[in-house]
Amino acid sequence: MFMSFLINFEKLVGFLNSISSKVSATLLFLMMILTFSDVTGRFLWRPVTGTYELTYLWLALIVFLSLGYTQQKKGHISVGVFIDKLSVRAQAVVDGITYIIILVLLVLMAWQTYSYANQVSSSVTGDLKLPVSIFVLVCAVGILFYALTVIVDFLKAVRKVVHPNES
């Protein structure tokens, strides 16, 4: 029962991370086109209005929306000089403790990001008059996707503690 829940939950989180990483990649591509157009526009006709605003807003979205996918692919930096020498069960215990700490921090980050979005609900950007709170809320969603991925990893670590010989 636990295994079927874990597999289904992992598929759901993987699907959410896949969507958010594709949105992030699309924004990166659009940011590249926008920056190229702005730079060439300075020499040919005139620069693109709002490039600076869109660049910093999209960059925040790119970072936050790709965190969960990076965690899912184990792309974050980790140093395991001492941990690698422990048994599988001991490594899983250390991983579980680490995931709990990360999860607490991510919940606090998501809460504060949501709170900040409420504070800036009436703020808009300078040139394009885009509402800042929407971008901040999407960043909070990215943090939540990251937290869901950490929950999946935590559950896998618990499984390794209980059954260290299973893959």
Rank of each mutant, 00 (worst) to 15 (best):
V13S: 04
F15G: 10
S21K: 08
S24T: 03
S24K: 04
T26Y: 07
T26R: 08
T26P: 05
L27P: 00
L27D: 02
M32R: 08
I33G: 01
F36C: 09
S37R: 05
S37A: 10
V39F: 00
V39N: 02
G41F: 01
R42S: 09
W45R: 11
T51C: 02
E53A: 06
T55A: 10
L59E: 13
A60P: 05
I62T: 04
I62N: 04
V63I: 13
S66L: 04
G68N: 00
T70F: 01
Q71E: 10
Q71W: 02
I77F: 01
I77A: 06
V79T: 05
L86C: 07
S87G: 13
V88W: 07
R89S: 07
V93W: 11
V93E: 08
D95A: 12
G96A: 13
L105A: 15
L108S: 15
M109A: 12
M109H: 15
S122C: 11
S122A: 14
V124H: 15
K129R: 15
K129M: 14
L130E: 07
P131S: 00
S133M: 10
S133W: 09
F135S: 06
V136K: 06
V136S: 07
L137T: 15
C139E: 07
G142Q: 00
L144N: 11
A157M: 00
